[in-house]
Nucleic acid binder design. Structure first.
Lengths: 228, 228
DNA sequence: TTAATTTGTTAGTCATAACTAACTTTTTTA
DNA sequence: TAAAAAAGTTAGTTATGACTAACAAATTAA
């Protein structure tokens, strides 16, 4: 009964876990990423993540000590970045060539990112002329896994009178993405903060002659460049 | 312990089985398609196919009697045709837009055909302007699952002096497809049968000022339109 | 600093889909 | 038509990746 470790060909699940750990690590760089948090993020039980973490440790993708925080090895990171590259390239393709909207791309890209073919993704990249950003404004890693992380500030971090430009939106929720489109915001929209209400931190914003009030939660998911 | 039957969302495996049965049924319309034959085709054990057949029968995709031949219900056929549509559209995309060659497309298309998104495939179809044939010359079913079956004759069925045009090639083997490309045959190539050798049924053919001898096995996998 | 809460782990179960080995039915052929 | 071969079936096992329930460790709060 020798336990064969499939070192090279990762399953869809293994890939999903590695990507999730990576996302959690960059989301909150300094804070501990733990087992339950991962379970929560992936919407599975803590027992499931615990199990998978063991396997990924044995395969050399993850490091952690018992009851300790999770981290990825270089190999683990490399897998995660390649998945993100695939995900974002597919999203770009779906939006720019196949008439998908922001809120429609995520689910399909989640499937497409697991297709195993180096040539496929590199040719898709070339076909689209090596796009730098995906439709939500996020950076696309290149074929060598290199990418720049632009420090992101949220709309919620600004103050009355500030003017900013929408550079990216969090792509985690279909409802949120639909909402963003519906009120008329697009990448590069110039947004002026008219008022930040002390009571509930809701924000009155103006863009393209539209005035809207958005919640703190909404503003937390909108990433901007401060202009003024 | 109520046995929940996942009637709508088929697994990758279930889809593979339905497609395989469909392919075997159209390959040899009149001949019985049996359990062992299916196992052989899918390169799994007869026990595995037997098991899966039971499940697909319970779900209403397959019909067969104990020890009898296999057949698909309308629903089963519909699933298979949609898979073939997806497979062929992806192959077309890979060849025409992403620089894939004949022999490279199959494996990737096998993965891509399982992506679940109606919009994805219909938009891909539109993007390529509704192609009628895939790169190997096979018909692509339309969005309603309609397609025409062109009765195919093989190069091996012709006689000395006949002239034909290459209309399709069997896409089952990478080695075969590489071979076809290497000797210089492409879709629409005009081929003249110079000689059929009685000894081993090998055939001397001429096309584009090239003269080649091909085996019976090779000629069985080349589909043509007889011109003269 | 002890108790409560949160977080992490283990053990055992289930479904899917593969496998081998043994057995039964059907078909072929001698 | 009876024996041999081929085809089909069943039983029992394995790996993956979920799950629940029970338990242990670590952290937080009283």
């Amino acid at each position: 009964m020798t336990n064969k470790l499939n070192l090279n060909n990762l399953t869809k699940s293994e890939e999903d876990y590695l990507k999730a750990i990576f996302q959690l690590l960059i989301e909150d760089a300094s804070v501990k990423v733990g087992n339950n948090q991962l379970a929560d993020y992936l919407k599975v039980s803590p027992a499931s993540t615990n199990n998978m973490i063991k396997k990924l440790k044995a395969k050399g993708y993850v490091v952690s000590e018992k009851y300790g925080k999770l981290d990825l090895t270089e190999r683990g990171k490399s897998v995660a970045v390649r998945l993100i590259r695939k995900h974002r390239l597919w999203e770009t393709f779906l939006c720019n060539y196949l008439n998908f909207t922001w809120d429609e791309v995520h689910d399909v890209a989640e499937q497409l990112e697991h297709i195993k073919s180096r040539k496929l993704i590199d040719e898709l990249d070339r076909f689209m002329d090596f796009p730098k950003k995906d439709p939500h404004g996020e950076m696309i890693p290149n074929a060598n896994g290199e990418y720049s992380i632009i420090p992101k500030i949220t709309l919620s971090s600004l103050s009355e009178g500030d003017v900013c430009q929408l550079v990216a939106v969090n792509d985690g929720s279909v409802h949120f993405l639909k909402y963003v489109s519906e009120i008329g915001l697009v990448l590069s929209s110039e947004i002026k903060i008219l008022e930040v209400r002390e009571f509930d931190k809701s924000i009155r914003i103006k863009f393209d002659n539209t005035i809207e009030t958005v919640t703190r939660k909404f503003a937390d998911n909108v990433f901007v460049n401060k202009v003024v």
